[in-house]
Amino acid sequence: MVKIKDIEIGEFPLLLAPMEDVSDPPFRALCKKYGADVMYTEFISSEGLIRDAAKSVQKLDIFEYERPIGIQIFGSEIDSMKQSAEICESANPDIIDINYGCPVKKVACKGAGAGILQDIPKMVSMTAEIVKSTNLPVTVKTRLGWDESSKHIVEVAERLQDVGIQAISIHGRTRKQMYKGEADWTLIAETKNNPRLHIPVFGNGDIDSPQKALEYKNKYGVDGVMIGRASIGNPWFFREVKHFVETGELLPKATLEERVKVTKEHLEFSVRWKGERLGVVEMRRHYANYFKGIENFKPTRTQLVTLDEYEEIVEVLGGIMDQYGAYVD
């Protein structure tokens, strides 16, 4: 049984990656329903939390059924990160997660996210201070290094463990790679196999099929996998991976009927949580993924991303089975 401190999370846990503008409560509810073992919020700016910025504070919303859930924070100032960890603790999550992996320029070039991989001593000091500032288990999400010449993840993971983190998730690319090329899991395995490391190590990057999840489990020996892009518009992915890891059998893909039903659920929660205007607009990024692979779907997708009224969108969704049922196995 894999544990993050005292929290049992399964034999081979599947973690939902924190994804900006994706892993909000409506999306997390669906991933939980279909088998995610641990989830993280979208990453939250420490400076935003301290300034009480509405967008940052709203990201602290968590629900009982989501547990265990971690709130993920990012920032470049140690004092701000400590303060934000204390603010997060008052939202009563199970875990505080530190983002040392985001490669986006506006984050990394300010020394936050993956930017801190250029200053490992600061990364270790910041982590130590955050661990001291909270009673919750602290975990870290990071990358192999800043670039090809600085892939020090084996040593970095050990140093972070020594200052008190309880688990580490490693994306198998450098910051310089962004999301390009293939993720390199050999250094994730080396980190896991370091005899001095006794915290769970979760691998992240390119898990896009149940077969690959099982292959990487066996080949690299990780304690679990963190799943990001493969789950967008496809919360069933967790169910499919779990079933394949346990039985070696592939489940049938979600039917069109199930895709419509879940899209409606997602939209309804989105509108309930964010209000109609924002809920409708922010849902637009999901339709292409929910209905990927359906022949001649473009006109309907155009409707879904241009309509502004919730009821009108529900009506369009309601007609999808009649219109496209013949195109789907």
Rank of each mutant, 00 (worst) to 15 (best):
R196S: 15
H198T: 14
H198W: 09
H198R: 12
I199E: 06
I199S: 07
P200S: 09
V201F: 04
F202S: 13
F202R: 03
G203L: 01
D208N: 12
S209F: 10
P210V: 06
K212Q: 13
A213M: 09
A213S: 10
A213V: 14
A213E: 03
Y216P: 07
K217R: 15
K217I: 04
N218R: 12
G221Q: 10
G221C: 09
M226F: 01
G228K: 04
A230Y: 01
A230T: 03
S231N: 03
I232N: 03
N234M: 05
W236S: 13
W236D: 03
V241K: 12
V241L: 06
V241D: 08
H243Y: 15
F244C: 06
E246W: 07
T247D: 10
E249G: 07
L250T: 05
L250G: 14
L250Y: 05
P252W: 03
K253F: 04
L256G: 07
E257N: 12
E258G: 04
R259P: 03
V260C: 03
K261V: 01
K264S: 10
L267A: 07
L267W: 08
F269G: 01
S270C: 01
R272P: 00
W273P: 02
W273I: 14
K274M: 04
G275S: 08
R277A: 09
R277C: 03
L278E: 11
M283E: 11
M283W: 02
H286N: 05
K292S: 11
F297P: 00
